[in-house]
Structure formats: structure tokens, C-alpha cells
Nucleic acid binder design. Structure first.
Lengths: 360, 360
DNA sequence: ATGAAAGCGCTAACAT
DNA sequence: ATGTTAGCGCTTTCAT
């Protein structure tokens, strides 16, 4: 193993440009008190030598690590990767996060942490001691884990909480769950549906509540009842099956169902098929989460896109801004989500009202 | 911005245990020349204080960075993420890579690099200067980029080349492309097919050639001709459409087609539908790459699983072994891939021979 | 088997 | 506006 030292250091640049280390440091950190001519001379030496500062050395001298850590739930993330269902949270995070980080000279690293477990704190402390990140992005369900939030607050480190609207330390950023649920409900109402069911998400996620709230609010505004139209779920396919069965077994069963994620939407589709209900002829379905499986389902499903990349990108922007200016962002951010119409939603078939299956 | 210093350093541990820094260093690095009793005493102090070494400080003193860099092609990776088609290379890389790294106290970082471009070298040098990784994992098409390989070789850094079988510096690791192609061909021959077509992958990837070779070899072994049964492709859906049309427009068109990736397989399915061919009644299809879209297609497709996670995991193991022992692994590694049968493959329908569509 | 001293590349604090 | 000095936390010599 050859000892791999930095090939070209700030010293080389300094001697090449005939200035002190400090002046070079000022140039690379874009600090004041350097005359333009001098700045130019130093920059030229930097370019000529191909100098790039070492992150490790910068961190050592008590400055930035230029690292932003994305904290994801270990069990969930691994399960998602293993299922290969294409609900590619981490990929979308990296898409938004890495590219935005790169624009500011930062890098993004993914770290897996167990939400449940008494050792969260130790795990976090270890990751921080090893990596010393400058900022952190929390994803659900970490975004609302009081232990994690308190830890980050104590560190005095800027962080974003994705999927949370709670006040408190850290910037809360959501993907407008309530608004999306309202828009989905609106779409169905516009198609003539009146009995619109909703399968909720895991109560561990506050966004589940917000989606349910949005649906209830929109139904109420249209003067429609939600009695017997809510079924609980926990984001698993199995819970989707159970809830779809429960909703559709009723006398006055819904003519449309909104599922709080993609797997439960696929479950609704499966149940509809089993009950010989045509989608969208007899039953309209809308999925929260526009994953590959949803798009390739038969029929392709109307879905709400989760703008994960855009959300993480904004989170990074906030963190870096706070790092630079020191001012905390107080207000919550809400990233709009698109509703994509496909073939799982259709006008309510009148024929069904007289009890006859199928159309005229 | 509070100055964030290391909370507990090697100094704290040393004074807590009443030994010198050096002894603590020996313990955490598992070096010899420490008496068991002393080792234990130090370890206890480490545990009590929750000490974790700083990666930056370690790197600074000319030792490891405990970082393994995964180099992915920028354009391709971003396009994959944006398409959201669920062919989740990076996710699977992280699944295999991060977890294996963690077992050895390493971390994995993803870095995007342009394969084409005169500035590859500068980009690489910058990433290395900033991050100083201990090892690198090259993914296609980087795995066969001579500029990148030469650069890494000059650095004297251990690296793996995924998807390459070429000799040279770095450990070549493939997912047994040739064997998988043979097995897919075998399956179809076993079902009675004789005219088995193949749509090749981009010639920029050597694995494309290996897949084609496997198919040709297996056909030859069964005494079957491949005349007019090969169509070129470049992994895009569009190229899949063109090639499927070309193959199926012939008089003596194939009764089965193997597509060198998932998108082209989906294209074959679309073309079959347009030509009123039943899958698998009139045409069997096998996809290289078992992505979500392939599994949710109508019908769900028989596919070859790309064991990306396992492959990257093995790559990490090799790199860390080389880091520890200093000995290079010479032989190429071949990770077996599973062939998953679904409903896009079926026995050759005899009825079709007399020109009548459908079965008896 | 253990310890002491030097230095890695950089920045903060303090000169000038 | 520029330079000098003193570490940051750790590992590598080199003593003992």
C-alpha cells in the first residue's frame, strides 16, 4: 500500500503563486481582503496545478466537512431495496440531493439508522463522530422522532425534516399531502363520484393524517358523507387487501378509492379484479405515489407524484443557506405534487345505480 | 455557527484509561504489542465514553479514509433516476455496498462522473483530492474506460470493475452474462422453440457481447441456426421497438425473443401487441433485468435477475481484503444470476405452423 | 510492551 | 491587504 498523500496541497499553490498559505485559503473560501489581481494570480496557480482542497484537512481545522448526511430508516430502506418495487426513495433523494449539493461544493452521504431501538442515540453519535456532517436531512419516520430531533438540536446543526409540519428545530418540508388528497378527491367528485373511499397510511407517519384530512375536508366541502368510507392501512400490500375488501363488501360500497400509497393501490386493483369489478368502469382508483408498478399496472393508474427529488433539493438549499448566513428558516415549506391522470379513473357509470353490473 | 469539535477524542480515552495516545491507537486499530489486560482496560474506556475515531483525523495522519467510492456514469444514472422505471442500479449498489462496508467499518459514497468527455481525468482527480477514498468500484461503462482504469492504477488504489472480464488492473466482476444468456436460450429450446431471436445491447458495454455470445453458443450446441435472428439494440425502448419490428416482420419470424434489457423487452411486448401476437401463445419473451416494470407487465415477464447487490458486496469484500493484506486478486469473479420464470414464456404452439393464429 | 514527538493539510486568530 | 502562528485528532516514526 503506497502511502497516498495529497498530491498537490495548499502549500504548493502558495509557493507557486508566491504568496502565503492564508492568501490561498482566502481565495478558495471566497473571503474578503484579497486584491483582485492577487486573487487572479492565486486562482491561476490553482487551475494550473489542478488543486482541490482536501475535505479531511478542512474538517480537521475546525471548519466545514462539506458533507450533508441523509438519515434514512434502516429497516424500511432495506426492505424497499429488497422488494425492488421501484418506489425508489433513496434514488430520488440522491437525484435531488447530490446534484444540489454539488452546485455548492457539498457532497451527500446516505446513512441508515434504526428509528425504533434504544440505541438510536449511540448510532447517531457514532455517525457524527466519524463523519462530522455540516447538515442533516431527516426522512420519514425519522422526521418526527423526538430523540433524533433533540440530538440534532443539541449539536446545533442545520437540518430539514421531510414529511413533517411540526414546529420546532429544523426546517419542516412536506410534499403538500393535504392539498394532493384534496385534488384527488376533487377529481373524483368532478367525475360524478359521491361514495369515495380512502385507505389511510401508517399512523406512524403524520403525512397519513394529513392525507386523510385533505380527503375529509374536500368531501365535506362538497356536502358528501364519509361514513363507512375510511379504512385504515399501514402502507403494506396486505393491509391494502384487507381494507379494500372491507370497503367493497359493504352494501353501499364506494365507486372510487384513494389509496395512501402505491402498494395499497395495487392491492385495491387486485381486490377489484377478484370481485369482478371493472377498473375504471365500476371502480376508480387513485394511488399516492407514482411508482413504476403503478404506471405499468392494468390499467395504468391515476396517481399523485411524490416530488422527492425536488423536496430534497430544497432541503439542501435551506441547509446550505443556514450554514452560510446563520439564519434559521422558520416557516414550513410545502412542495407541490402533481396529479397524473391515467386509466384507473373514469366518470361514474350511471347504470350501476340500478344494481345491474356492467353498463347499458 | 457553533464550532463543532470532536466531543470525545483519543486524548480523552487515553487520559481516562491512564495510558498514552499510542496505546489507544493500537487498540482501535487492532494492532499487536498491547497486553490483553491493557487492551481490555482501553476498550472499556472507549465504550464508556462512546468514543468513535474521526475519519477526517485518520485520513489526515496519512492513514485510511475508510471510504469506498462508487463511480457511476453521470448521464446514465441521472436518466435512470428521472425515468423512474425502477431499474434501480444505485439503490441495489447501496444495498450491497453500504451494508458490506459497514461490517468492516467502511462507508460507501456515490460519485457521478462523465464517461465521455475530455475532463474525466480532471473530474476524477478532483474527487480523489477532496475525498481520498481507499477503494473504488467501477460500474459499466466506466469499468472499461481506459482513462479511468489508468488513473486508478497510477493511484495504486484497489478497485473493482463490475461488468468487465478484461484482464488488467482491478478485479473484474461480472454477473455471468454469458451463462445467463445460455440458460435463457436453453429454457426456450426446452419449450420447443427453434427460431429464438435476440436483441443485443449497446456495444459500449462488453456484457452485451457476452450475452450475444451465450445465446449463439447455446443455439449452435442445439444445432439451431441464428440466421436473421439477431437484431442490434442500444438498451433504449426505441431501439427495442425497431428491432422487434425487424425480427417479427420476417417471413420466418422468431417464436421467442430474448431482449438484452428490460426496456427493450417491454418494447417487444408492445410490438407483439400491435402485431396481434399473443404473449406467450404466439411469442415468448425473456428480459435481461428483472425490474418492477417487467414484473408488472401484462403478462408478467420471465426475466434474468441482475444480482447487483450481491456483486457490489463481493466487490467491496475484495477491495477491503486487498487493503488489509495487500495482495491483489487476479482471477475474475462471476456472480451467478437467477432466471425467474413467469408468464411470458410457454411451449411453442404447434398450431401456428399451419399459418392459423391461436391454438387448436 | 509502552510512550513521546513530529507532522498530515488546512483554517482561525492574531499580527503587521 | 497580506503574513505568521498555533492547533484540529490522529498515526507514524522513533525511543525506551
Amino acid at each position: 500500500m503506497a502511502r497516498r498523500r495529497q498530491a498537490v496541497t495548499i502549500k504548493h499553490v502558495a509557493s507557486d503563486a508566491g504568496v502565503s498559505l492564508q492568501t490561498v485559503s482566502r481565495v478558495i473560501n471566497d473571503e474578503p481582503n484579497v486584491r483582485p489581481a492577487m486573487r487572479e494570480r492565486v486562482q491561476e496557480a490553482i487551475d494550473r496545478l489542478g488543486y482541490v482542497p482536501s475535505i479531511a484537512a478542512r474538517r480537521m481545522s475546525g471548519s466545514r466537512s462539506y458533507l450533508i448526511l441523509a438519515l434514512n430508516d434502516r429497516a424500511r430502506t432495506i426492505a424497499d431495496w429488497q422488494s425492488r418495487e421501484g418506489s425508489d426513495w433513496v434514488g430520488q433523494m440522491l437525484l435531488g440531493g447530490m446534484l444540489t449539493c454539488a452546485r455548492y461544493g457539498y457532497r451527500m452521504m446516505v446513512e441508515l439508522v434504526d428509528t425504533h431501538a434504544d440505541h438510536v442515540e449511540r448510532e447517531l453519535a457514532a455517525a457524527f463522530a466519524a463523519l462530522q456532517p455540516d447538515g442533516v436531512i431527516l426522512t420519514p419516520p425519522h422526521s418526527e422522532n423526538p430523540v433524533i430531533i433533540a440530538f440534532l438540536d443539541r449539536q446545533g446543526i442545520p437540518f430539514a425534516r421531510i414529511g413533517s409540519r411540526d414546529a420546532g428545530p429544523g426546517v419542516p418540508i412536506t410534499m403538500d399531502d393535504e392539498g394532493s388528497a384534496r385534488r384527488a378527491t376533487q377529481l373524483l367528485i368532478g367525475l360524478g363520484h359521491q361514495r369515495i373511499g380512502l385507505i389511510g397510511g401508517s399512523s406512524e407517519y403524520s403525512l397519513s393524517q394529513r392525507r386523510t384530512d385533505g380527503w375529509r375536508a374536500e368531501m365535506a366541502q362538497a356536502g358528501l358523507s364519509t361514513d363507512g368510507l375510511f379504512a385504515p392501512g399501514d402502507f403494506t400490500y396486505e393491509s391494502g387487501l384487507a381494507s379494500a375488501h372491507a370497503l367493497l363488501a359493504q352494501d353501499d360500497s364506494p365507486t372510487a378509492i384513494i389509496a395512501s400509497n402505491d402498494r395499497m393501490a395495487l392491492a385495491v386493483l387486485a381486490v377489484a379484479e377478484k370481485r369482478k369489478l371493472c377498473v375504471p368502469g365500476d371502480l376508480s382508483i387513485i394511488s399516492f405515489d407514482n411508482s413504476a408498478a403503478v404506471r405499468h399496472a392494468q390499467p395504468p393508474m391515476t396517481a399523485i407524484e411524490q416530488p422527492v427529488a425536488e423536496t430534497v433539493s430544497q432541503a439542501v438549499e435551506h441547509i446550505i443557506r443556514e450554514l452560510k448566513t446563520g439564519e434559521k428558516q422558520a416557516e414550513a415549506v410545502r412542495v407541490p405534487a402533481a396529479l397524473i391522470e391515467r386509466q384507473s379513473t373514469a366518470p361514474l357509470a350511471k347504470a350501476r345505480d340500478n344494481g345491474l353490473p356492467g353498463s347499458a
